[in-house]
């Protein structure tokens, strides 16, 4: 494998792990506060649809992003209402949101655009365009560093940089601010936080809203950054894979990034491996390759690589008085 194809592989790894990273960090805030969230998938989907629709109608990708975030936060608040205020089953609520998002995107898309659930193709200002970092052209001819800088680091869409900037930011918020300390505490022992006079409900709602904002970014990236428009079920299980990355990374921000890069890498490899003759195995079937991320997720979750310790109060509604 030469340098050019290696860089190409790294480049597509970064692109493919960006939505996973947004979604996994979104899940991180929610689950660290004690609210399990398997509705990352549905929120990404509705955000992808909302941002592609808004971008198609007004031709502005930023407006698209805003609508994507609003849609995802709206769904987050439903999840919060069910799991915080009404103390319902958080998994059931998540499943419900995933179904509603899957159906709603198609029905509304068909009613508004009449293209079988797709949104019109985006072009020009309706899409995020590549950002050229300074001196990218100038250093292109420098050996090794040049291609890496100008080919991989430069020329990504702005949301890619935002996603990777969110990793240190999340770390800082979680481990260096008062809000972060309380957020982690409410996921481990809400009664202690309550005793200290801090509202468990308000804290958890804030976590859930942050989760919505980040899944909004994830969805907007899918439909207006990576692709040029919304297509039916375009998340294709990415929300679940992000969740797996979160579990695999033990609910810690920096490991989350590496887990997402790993899953993104597998995705990038699987596109390239199709139809290639491998030693010992022979030609790899397309179906096996497409199932590979899910199979690996199961293997990773089975804990053959380390033990997952979820936030202790995760999934348990908080009852103030007994």
């Amino acid at each position: 494998m030469d340098l050019a194809s290696l860089l190409d592989l790294i480049d597509s790894t970064i692109r493919l792990s960006t939505p996973l990273l947004f979604a996994a960090l979104a899940g991180l805030y929610s689950e660290r506060s004690g609210i399990f969230d398997i509705s990352l998938e549905g929120k990404m989907l509705i955000a992808a649809f909302a941002s592609a629709s808004a971008a198609a109608v007004w031709g502005s990708v930023l407006l698209g992003l805003v609508f994507g975030i609003l849609a995802a936060v709206g769904f987050s608040l439903v999840h919060g209402l069910a799991s915080i205020t009404y103390r319902g089953n958080q998994i059931v609520s998540g499943v419900a949101i995933n179904f509603i998002a899957a159906g709603l995107t198609i029905i509304l898309g068909q009613a508004w655009f009449g293209q079988g659930g797709r949104t019109p193709s985006l072009f020009g200002g309706g899409r995020f365009t590549a950002v050229e970092l300074p001196f990218a052209e100038a250093v292109r001819d420098v050996p090794v560093i040049g291609p890496i800088y100008s080919g991989v680091l430069s020329g990504q869409t702005p949301l890619v940089y935002v996603a990777f900037a969110m990793v240190p930011l999340t770390w800082w918020v979680l481990f260096r601010t008062r809000f972060g300390l309380r957020l982690r505490a409410v996921g481990e022992n809400p009664a202690a936080v309550d005793t200290a006079g801090i509202s468990v409900t308000f804290l958890r709602y804030r976590a859930v809203i942050i989760c919505g904002v980040l899944t909004g970014f994830a969805g907007a990236y899918l439909s207006t950054g990576q692709a040029a428009g919304f297509t039916r079920d375009m998340t294709a299980g990415k929300g679940y894979i992000a969740l797996a990355a979160l579990i695999f990374a033990n609910w810690k921000p920096v490991p989350v990034m590496f887990a997402c890069l790993l899953f993104g890498f597998l995705d990038a490899v699987s596109i390239r491996i199709q139809g290639v003759e491998l030693p010992l195995v022979g030609e790899v079937s397309v179906q096996f390759v497409s199932a590979l991320p899910y199979i690996l997720t199961v293997i990773l979750l089975a804990g053959f690589v380390g033990k997952a310790t979820p936030p202790r109060a995760g999934g348990v509604p908080y009852v103030k008085e007994r």
């Binding site: 439903v78 209402l81 069910a82 799991s83 009404y86 103390r87 319902g88 089953n89 958080q90 059931v92 609520s93 499943v95 419900a96 949101i97 995933n98 179904f99 509603i100 998002a101 899957a102 159906g103 709603l104 198609i106 029905i107 068909q110 009613a111 659930g117």
Partner: peptide
């Protein structure tokens, strides 16, 4: 024609939401 099979998926989700997650509302 505006209401396809996918409408059922929404209803299914709403039933799960209101009969399951929001049963205490």
């Amino acid at each position: 024609p505006a209401i396809s099979r996918d409408m059922i998926v929404i209803i299914q989700g709403l039933v799960i939401l209101f009969a399951g997650a929001l049963e205490n509302m």
